[in-house]
Nucleic acid binder design. Structure first.
Length: 417
DNA sequence: TCTGGGGTCCTAGGACCC
DNA sequence: TCTGGGGTCCTAGGACCC
């Protein structure tokens, strides 16, 4: 038997908004965004107008993360909206992780503003977990200027649930023996992995709290929700035992995708293909940069009515070639598209493998020359910027030659603990 | 111009083989 | 001749996370 683990979940409070507020205060702004109704929001003119992060005062007006800005403004007419600055947020995130490294070398990045830290065994060195957590929280506030929540328990699930208990600027424990008083009393939708589709179904079964779920017959859950039901039951009982995964700095990647909402509705095939190319350019470059080839390509379409669908297809031979992926993306699009105005297009590649050895197919066109071109273009773009070299088709078009393209690969945000 | 973008995993149904 | 079933691969779509 291994000894009892001590896991911390660390979460920056209203991350984007706090970081934005700190930056602005440091640069001479008088108001603290955190103290007024404010949000970090996308650009409405380019149809990216949603709330990315909100301040606590704006929360009191019922403003929600992810909702359209226009709706948020309706709830709170004097809402202050500031645009996002992703490079800044990555720097803030890294600064937070750097501090945390003083307390354990087992840190799993979970998203830009969240991570798990394995404190097991460190108490002998650093002292009582609760006191250390308070120390970390105060240190980050002092050195970096923003507040965090820390949840402490014996596994990642409970640590995460603990971190969510009361915000901001708090440390909570949620050990298994504390579940009845601290977790089971919560509405069932507060449980990790109970989202807006599952919650109503549970409610319909008379399950309103996490405690109700914990008391539900496991066979009934299995019957209704299959493997999902078994997971929900385990989570309601605080059962979860995956390790804090810090294998390498780069998390294990399953796929690479890029998608965008176009600032106008696309109504013709040629324009759609052009958008796909701009998406593939970025995806393929990231693919090569990571040293991967892919076997699966997926194209997704969101219509102006917000309905989505897609198509996918496998390559017989894995590839990392821009033109080959682009050609397949176009074929997939042509097969899938039902002709309605398009709001959003996405391309994703998965089933990745290494690219150090490429199997040459006798049956398919050889892309070897293309691969050399890709690599040359990558080099130029890395050195001189994304727009230093691009396809002539983008000249005089309303589209950017490369879409998305966060150059720095930031840790995957995943729903998997 | 009211609803972003980047991930992971699971399931269902059809094709195909034995 | 008629009919059954299991396994695997492929594709489409849905659920969840931040």
């Amino acid at each position: 038997m291994d000894k009892k683990r001590i896991i911390f979940h660390i979460d920056a409070n209203s991350a984007y908004l706090s970081w934005e507020a700190v930056y602005r205060l440091q640069h001479g702004e008088a108001v603290d965004l955190r103290e007024i109704p404010s949000v970090v929001g996308g650009n409405q003119a380019t149809r990216h107008g949603i709330v990315l992060a909100k301040s606590i005062p704006s929360k009191k007006y019922g403003v929600k993360t992810g909702e359209p800005l226009i709706q948020a403004r309706r709830k709170c007419p004097n809402l202050v909206v500031v645009p996002p600055r992703y490079e800044l947020y990555m720097q803030c995130s890294s600064a937070m992780i750097d501090v945390l490294k003083d307390y354990s070398d087992k840190i799993q990045l979970f998203s830009i503003d969240e991570c798990f830290l394995d404190f097991t065994g460190m108490d002998a060195l650093l002292g009582d977990p609760l006191e250390v957590a308070h120390g970390i929280k105060e240190r980050i506030k002092r050195e970096l200027g923003f507040t965090i929540n820390i949840g402490i328990s014996s596994n990642k699930l409970l640590a995460k649930m603990a971190g969510e208990l009361k915000k901001p600027d708090m440390v909570h424990t949620l050990y298994p023996e504390e579940m009845p008083s601290k977790m089971w009393v919560l509405p069932v939708e507060e449980l990790y992995m109970v989202g807006r589709a599952t919650a109503p179904k549970l409610n319909q079964m008379g399950i309103y709290t996490i405690g109700d779920l914990a008391k539900t017959n496991i066979d009934l859950l299995k019957y209704k929700f299959k493997s999902w039901g078994l997971m929900l039951y385990a989570y309601a009982h605080g059962i979860e035992d995956t390790p804090v995964n810090n294998d390498g700095a780069v998390p294990y990647i399953k796929g690479i995708g890029n998608s965008c909402t176009i600032h106008f509705d696309v109504e013709d095939r040629e324009t759609a293909h052009k958008v796909l190319l701009s998406l593939v350019e970025t995806v393929a470059m990231r693919l090569r940069h990571g040293g991967f080839c892919c076997r699966l390509v997926q194209v997704s379409i969101r219509t102006s009515e917000l309905a989505s669908y897609g198509h996918q297809r496998k390559f017989h031979v894995a590839t990392d070639c821009t033109n080959e992926i682009y050609a397949e993306a176009c074929r997939l699009f042509d097969r899938a598209w039902r002709g309605e105005p398009i709001r959003h297009l996405g391309v994703r590649v998965s089933e990745l493998c290494g690219n150090d050895f490429i199997q040459l197919s006798m049956l398919e066109e050889s892309w070897e020359k293309q691969r050399l071109v890709d690599r040359a273009v990558d080099k130029i773009r890395l050195k001189h910027g994304s727009y230093s070299i691009f396809r002539a088709g983008f000249l005089h078009s309303r589209l950017a030659p490369m879409q998305g393209g966060v150059v720095e690969d930031f840790p995957v945000m995943t729903s998997i603990l």
